[in-house]
């Protein structure tokens, strides 16, 4: 058995809190995170992903169950010592004082400093390395309030890197980021896990990124906790349970589709000169506006033809009318009208 020896091992963990009459409970949860592994935790809003992370970093105490760090029960590790093992990046974004990126990152060294909080040259070297790793050199002296959302997230990750811990937990590091920044952050975190042999666990809502990038997928549901390589979960067809049957997960394309209730039927034929991809796109467009495709002839028949270099969509209606559309947009407009 390889890779089951965990950096972080969670056993039958019951999590939750009871603040101001708001009670919340989740679990039991069991999983193991290995060294050098990028893991992602997904699940619907309010299922307890953040609470789980906070329990792992001991901002919340567990109700039951155990967490082990390198085989040691986490509960028995003093918090000051634990801050050298596990770093946390939270969603909290309030910075009342103008603090530079460098200052923010250097705060990651706090677990190693004496009460006077002076940085040694070794500390500064580690801070510099973290800044370089997150590609923040040019922003060193910029106030954290004046950088973009993506840059701020990188600075927060750099702070966690400066903390120099074998485990890093991140609560929604890609929230509020555009698609380029999202991928950028995830790749940097992947590099950190794989090259520096750190254990990285993050929560995310982005299933597509999770499936294509993570080594281990943790799926948290109200009464279920699934763990495995994303492909393992696809193999067992377990991902569909995530979406309460409102969405359908297509295991081949690896993408999500909303499960639609089709109200209308149409048939689609294409001439032999038309490539399959064009027929596919036509199907996608028709499904998008609520048409279910059947092979039988219906009240609406769509035929795709190739005319010169372009394509043409002929619509034959049951009332005998025929329309010719020169784009899928025109086809959708026409059939959208016809629905009414």
């Amino acid at each position: 058995m390889i890779g089951l020896e965990g950096e972080l091992e969670v056993q039958d963990l019951q999590i939750g809190y009871n603040i101001r009459n708001k009670e919340f409970r989740a679990g039991p949860i069991s999983f193991t995170l290995a060294e050098g592994e990028l893991a992602m935790l997904i699940g619907p809003n309010g299922v307890g992903k953040s609470t789980l992370l906070k329990t792992l970093i001991r901002l919340n105490e567990p109700i039951e169950g155990q967490v082990f760090f390198q085989g040691r029960p986490l509960r028995q590790i003093p918090k000051a010592e634990m801050s050298k093992y596990i770093a946390f990046v939270s969603t909290e974004t309030s910075y009342p004082f103008y603090i530079s990126v460098y200052e923010l990152v250097s705060l990651g060294r706090i677990p190693y400093l004496n009460w006077m909080g002076r940085l040694s040259s070794e500390d500064r070297r580690i801070v510099e390395r973290a800044i370089e790793q997150m590609q923040l050199e040019h922003l060193r002296n910029k106030p954290i309030q004046e950088v973009s959302d993506g840059e701020r997230q990188k600075a927060l990750i750099a702070r966690a890197l400066a903390q120099d811990t074998p485990v890093i937990l991140l609560d929604e590091p890609t929230a509020f980021l555009d698609i380029v920044n999202k991928h950028n952050i995830i790749h940097l975190l992947g590099d950190i896990a794989h090259q520096q042999k750190k254990t990285v666990l993050l929560t995310t809502h982005d299933l597509n990124i999770a499936i294509s990038e993570t080594d281990k997928l943790l799926v948290m549901l109200p009464n279920q906790f699934l763990v495995g390589a994303p492909e393992d979960l696809q193999l067992k067809n377990q991902l569909n349970s995530l979406f309460k049957n409102q969405f359908h997960f297509d295991p081949i394309s690896g993408t999500l589709k909303r499960v639609k209730s089709f109200l209308y039927k149409a048939s689609l034929k294409s001439e032999s000169t038309v490539p399959r991809s064009v027929a596919k796109l036509t199907q996608k467009a028709l499904e998008r506006i609520g048409y279910e495709l059947t092979d039988n002839s219906t009240r609406i028949n769509v035929i795709v033809k190739k005319v010169n270099q372009d394509y043409q969509w002929t619509v034959e209606l049951a009332d005998g009318n025929t329309f010719i559309c020169s784009s899928l947009y025109a086809l959708c407009r026409l059939l959208g009208e016809y629905k009414r």
């Binding site: 970093i57 918090k79 909290e92 309030s94 705060l107 706090i110």
Partner: peptide, 10 residues
Amino acid sequence: IGEKYAQTMG
């Protein structure tokens, strides 16, 4: 940078 971060830094 906040109480939560302070706690996670020991």
